[in-house]
């Protein structure tokens, strides 16, 4: 409104106002502020985890198996005497990168497919629609299991499987967002300016679909982490002794009856925290990118 119009228009000014916007929203909404802090923490652990941990996550100390949490071993030790804290921290990088790469792949291919379907319509739309329906018709986790089992039990295949089962969400969202804009005034104007269809789609329409996509990416990250951990839990993909949250929970599950709860609880808690963070982050991001919030 008038206030917005009177702010300085330089690039630096625009950036500063972006920061102000972020600060205002975070101050107003402590939950999303917390999500951003947790996200920073997870990122930090993923990047520098191996250098921060007190023990080698793979080293076994035969003398101290199944020790309860203590000052020396914050999260206790497992049946081989490995430090659970170190393993939980180091696992962050693997879990996060599987999820990140999978989400990036499904975002790129899903939104490209959806954008074309939404823009051109016709047979591209029908074909891609049926393809996505086919994917959606399976229970997604079972489909992922099947893909990994068929393609080979490797980490890369976990990434591909996770990417494939997430693809329909991006494709559908991109299709809907592009479809409502394909006849907007600015698209007509771009045509009059001599833009080809490809340019219009890539440079004029697609950037407008990004805000809702950002939210989808964030929500999807948590989901992808859970999916990767779930596949490892049932013995697909990542193999022992690699530290990974899903495997650690699977291995620890054997010891719940005998009372060594820390083997399950700490990697499980890490998983919960990561998923929780990305879900909250989604809400916060939506507030950041949604112009309706800019009163």
């Amino acid at each position: 409104m008038t206030q917005t119009a009177s702010t300085p228009a330089s690039a630096a000014g625009a950036q500063a106002s972006g920061w102000r916007q972020a600060r205002y929203l975070l101050a107003e909404n402590p939950v999303s502020a917390m999500a951003f802090v947790l996200f920073a923490l997870i990122l930090l652990l993923a990047l520098f985890g191996p250098w921060l941990v007190p023990y080698d996550p793979l080293a076994t100390y035969a003398g101290e198996p199944l020790q309860a949490p203590s000052a020396a071993h914050w999260f206790g030790t497992d049946n081989l005497g490995r430090d659970v804290f170190s393993r939980v921290v180091v696992a962050t990088r693997l879990d996060l990168s599987i999820a990140l790469v999978a989400v990036a792949l499904s975002f790129v291919f899903g939104s490209a497919l959806g954008a074309m379907a939404g823009y051109y319509g016709g047979w591209i739309d029908r074909l891609s629609g049926r393809l996505l329906d086919t994917i959606m018709a399976f229970p997604l986790f079972v489909l992922a299991m099947g893909i990994v089992a068929a393609a080979g039990n490797t980490v890369e295949n976990i990434v591909y499987a996770t990417a494939i089962i997430n693809l329909p969400f991006y494709a559908r969202m991109a299709r809907a967002e592009v479809n409502v804009r394909r006849n907007a005034g600015f698209v007509q104007a771009a045509r009059l300016s001599g833009n080809s269809d490809w340019r219009i789609l890539a440079l004029h329409i697609f950037p407008n679909t990004l805000p809702p996509m950002m939210v989808q990416i964030s929500l999807n990250m948590g989901w992808a982490i859970l999916n990767a951990a779930g596949l490892s839990f049932i013995g697909l993909g990542v193999r022992p002794p690699t530290p990974e949250w899903g495997i650690m929970v699977a291995e620890g599950a054997n010891f719940i009856i005998s009372g060594e709860w820390w083997l399950v609880v700490f990697p499980g808690a890490a998983l919960v925290l990561a998923v929780f963070t990305f879900n909250l982050l989604g809400d916060g991001l939506r507030d950041l990118v949604d112009p309706q919030r800019r009163t």
Partner: peptide, 14 residues
């Protein structure tokens, strides 16, 4: 051409 709706005819991200 000059379009009817000045808001709709400008790309909000440009």
């Amino acid at each position: 051409m000059v379009f009817q709706d000045p808001t709709d005819s400008l790309n909000p991200r440009w």
